[in-house]
């Protein structure tokens, strides 16, 4: 079946199978390899992308359901002309990256949560920020610097 959607700001049409998972559409179909496969069971968050601005696990999401929607992956986070989004800048500045395998997913979760907070005019506390990242596992950093980065994005 054929679906139309927007990916990182650009309209695309793509032929997929009914059972295709979004992560496979992104990595194999669109060759955007920045979205990472960590577990394929919704536990690690490495595959997190934004659908209409909200973070979801692309490994547990049917590609058919992005029809008519807008997907953002790590490659499109910075937008058309920016090179780095503030989320990426803060992750670098705070030292929130080690091996980097979790980083794409972390960045997308931070983006989604900080946008929501901004919309609601809310400045979340540390526990709330940490909670928003519970679906993103990181084996390297111990999370502290990632949460620091997220806090500074949300505080902005």
């Amino acid at each position: 079946m054929k679906i139309n959607f927007t990916i990182n700001g650009k309209g695309r049409a793509k032929e997929i199978k009914a059972s295709t998972l979004l992560i496979d559409l992104i990595r194999d179909g669109l060759k955007l390899k920045g979205t990472k496969p960590g577990c394929f069971e919704g536990e690690c968050g490495a595959c997190t992308v934004l659908v209409d601005g909200h973070a979801i696990n692309s490994c547990l999401y049917l590609a058919v359901n992005v029809a008519g929607k807008s997907i953002t992956t790590i490659e499109g986070l910075g937008g058309e002309d920016q090179f780095l989004d503030i989320v990426q800048e803060k992750l670098i500045e705070h030292g929130g990256v080690q091996c980097g395998f979790c980083t794409s997913g972390m960045a997308m979760s931070i983006k989604s949560y900080s946008d929501k907070c901004k919309e609601e005019g809310k400045v979340p506390n540390r526990n709330e920020v940490a909670k928003s990242l519970e679906g993103n596992l990181c084996r390297c950093t111990g999370y502290v610097k990632i949460v620091d980065a997220a806090i500074s994005v949300c505080g902005n």
Partner: peptide, 21 residues
């Protein structure tokens, strides 16, 4: 002095090529 990782930009923009890629 604190120095962000040499490869941090590549990592945060999804451009690093892991074996999976």
């Amino acid at each position: 002095k604190p120095q962000p990782k040499f490869d941090a930009k590549e990592r945060t923009t999804g451009r690093s090529v892991y074996g999976h890629d």
